[in-house]
Design a binder for these strands. Structure first.
Length: 599
RNA sequence: GGCUCCGUAGUUCAAUGGAUCAGAAUAUCAGAUUUCGGCUCUGAUGAUAGGGGUUCGAAUCCCUUCGGGGUCACCA
């Protein structure tokens, strides 16, 4: 418990400055109003107080404040060994003793890196595929984000429920069904040796090809484009199939069930390969009706209005938005209706404080409207809705458009990454003694590590470009570099062979620049994990562990661990190794990436 | 067109809703290292789209011009 309650250095500094201000000026200030930055490397010091904000309260010039507080701190608090004032910035040097003490407390702390933010029960919905085609590369950012954010929230003390919402009904599903019926001659995943989701996806593509041809033929026969698009026989057949589905036609339901099962089986294989799991899966075919009754209730309460054709609408113009359709004239539900129903169903199941939707930013407006509607309905689930919006992933060749056929399949991408991991590893020839199974697992670990890290290292809300060549380069700001650093530490620890880890703290130490830099990074880690949780931003984790890995490699160049100058120093450096290893593995784990001991 | 998001080194990304010389990675160039793993390290070059404004201080806030994305469906 003592270890969990350790106050981080920035808080310690703020508290001591707060005391200094009370003693020197008899003024009270909240620690939140104190601005502490890391000291820039070109100046002496570890942390810096920005004094400009204090000038009003203290009625003094920045430099004066900085000097007075600096002198006070140095003579009243052993935390500091030095201070320097530059243009109103008070640069403080924290004693090596503090960092050595921190290391003693933390190096073997199993849970080091846990964050503490006010805990809550949080649902995270992610992946959310359609059952008419396989997962493609664009889905991967969503899946990895959802998985990582869930782990990050859990690490911060939240209770997390991971859910998937499968869109398994609607006209797009019927399109692949009708094409299969027309062209497949009864082909199955078994008969064609094709993964189920890919097989169904093939017929979705087939539908679109056939549709295009039929439209062209009709236009040749003299129809205008608009009519041709509406009258293509295969489209009419799909629409007819949707009506049959909604009516519960047994034959249609059977086909639907069969093809969906193929897709589910295919998805399972992919999720499994990616290491992705869910606690609960919702299906829209089972939730889409519940939205309807809610809307009808709201209509009765006068919250909604009905047009002459019986369609039901909500007026959001007061909030600066539009009017939004909630039920079609024929009484069937639309996307928004389903989402209303699903949101309430989820809440009834779990009563969570917060419900996170990992959904692309093209649905920003939709999600804004969804939340607003539920708020207007005074539904308890409304306020907890949080859209974790992320930007599109583009390839260097440009945007992926399913219509233009430059979509990269998720399974193919994973296979390609794994293959490259194999190639790179074999060239280095450092895996002697691995069994075939271990090799297979290693290539998977490295390939997926590269992919996940590259997709997670960018702020989610920004669009990004995925460059397969760069991600697998295994150099620089990449997953494999971090994994490599972990394996390197493991190698040192194996050779250290359970060496004594006790540091005699009574011996005076003086830390090198690298050692202190590393300790400073390690000390900040839990604070960064809290930030990652608050912002739901895995890129914070990527950066944190990359910094540690980078600094560690730099440290190794100038310092020998196993041949340290004396036993005490060796023990200290081994402690540093252990904590670095722990932090790297901990961070990778939050990202859903394995940390190999050898590679 | 309305609403909205975004323009940072050649390229890909950073910079708590303000603060000391805008940081990395990659690429390029120059070096180090027979070492605990050469998937390592050190150094150099190189950027805030243009113009105004607010401030002691702006990549960040406001206005504007230009350029790009998204969205405005009885699709999901």
């Amino acid at each position: 418990m003592r270890k969990n309650r350790r106050m981080n250095i920035v808080m310690l500094i703020k508290t001591s400055i707060q005391q200094a201000i009370a003693a020197l000026y008899n003024k009270e200030i909240s620690t939140e109003d104190l601005q502490i930055n890391e000291t820039k490397p070109e100046f002496t010091g570890d942390y810096t107080l920005v004094t400009f904000a204090l000038t009003k309260l203290l009625q003094k010039k920045p430099d004066e404040i900085a000097h007075e507080i600096g002198h006070y701190l140095l003579s009243n608090d052993t935390l500091y060994t030095h201070f320097e004032v530059i243009k109103g910035f008070l640069n403080l040097t924290v004693s090596d003793q503090y960092y050595i003490g921190f290391l003693q407390q933390s190096f073997d702390h199993e849970n080091y890196g846990q964050a503490t933010i006010p805990p809550a029960k949080v649902m995270v919905e992610y992946s959310s595929p359609n059952t008419n085609k396989p997962l493609h590369f664009g889905h991967l950012r969503n899946i990895f984000l959802g998985h990582a954010v869930s782990a990050i929230l859990k690490n911060a003390g939240n209770e997390v429920v991971k859910v998937n919402l499968i869109n398994d009904r609607g006209i797009h599903i019927c399109k692949s069904m009708i094409a299969w019926q027309l062209f497949a001659n009864g082909a199955t995943p078994e008969s064609t040796h094709t993964k189920g989701d890919h097989l169904v996806g093939d017929y979705y593509v087939k539908f679109n090809d056939e549709y295009k041809e039929q439209v062209a033929t009709l236009q040749n026969d003299g129809l205008n484009e608009e009519d041709a698009k509406k009258q293509a026989p295969i489209l009419l057949a799909a629409q007819e199939m949707l009506r049959k589905w909604e009516a519960g036609d047994p034959e249609t339901m059977e086909l639907w069930q069969k093809m969906n099962d193929w897709v589910y089986a295919g998805f399972d294989v992919t999720y499994n390969k990616l290491g992705i799991t869910f606690e609960k899966t919702y299906q829209e075919s089972k939730t889409y009706l519940s939205g309807k009754s809610i809307v009808e209730k709201a209509l009765a309460n006068g919250l909604l209005y009905q047009k002459e054709d019986h369609s039901v609408w909500i007026d959001l113009t007061e909030a600066g938005l539009d009017q939004k359709l909630l039920l079609r004239g024929d009484g069937t539900s639309v996307y928004m209706t389903q989402d209303i129903g699903t949101a309430m169903l989820k809440y009834n199941d779990y009563h969570m404080n917060q419900s996170v939707y990992v959904i692309g930013d093209e649905q920003n407006y939709h999600m804004q409207v969804l939340k607003l509607i539920l708020q207007k309905m005074k539904e308890p689930c409304a306020d907890g809705i949080h859209h974790l919006s992320y930007g599109m992933v583009e390839l260097p060749s440009g945007k992926m458009k399913s219509r233009e056929g430059n979509v990269v399949d998720a399974d193919d991408m994973v296979d390609e990454m794994t293959a490259i991991a194999r190639k790179n590893t074999e060239e280095l020839g450092k895996v002697d003694g691995f069994t075939d199974e271990e090799l297979h697992r290693l290539y998977n670990t490295l390939g997926l590590g590269a992919l996940k890290f590259y997709l997670l290292r960018v702020d989610p809300k920004k669009k990004m470009i995925f460059d397969p060549q760069e991600s697998i380069d295994f150099h620089g700001f990449t997953g494999p570099f971090v994994q490599y650093s972990h394996a390197r530490i493991c190698s040192i620890m194996r050779k250290a062979n359970a060496h004594n880890l006790n540091v005699d703290a009574s011996q005076p130490f003086s830390l090198s620049v690298n050692e202190k830099n590393l300790l400073r990074l390690l000390e900040q880690y839990p604070v960064l994990m809290a930030q990652a949780a608050r912002e739901m931003n895995p890129s914070v984790v990527c950066n944190a562990i990359y910094q540690v890995a980078k600094e560690f490699n730099s440290f190794l160049v100038g310092h020998s661990v196993l041949k340290a100058e004396n036993e005490n120093l060796k023990a200290l450096r081994l402690q540093i190794c252990l904590l670095c290893r722990h932090v790297i593995a901990h961070g990778l784990n939050l990202l859903g990436i394995d940390a190999p001991e050898r590679m």
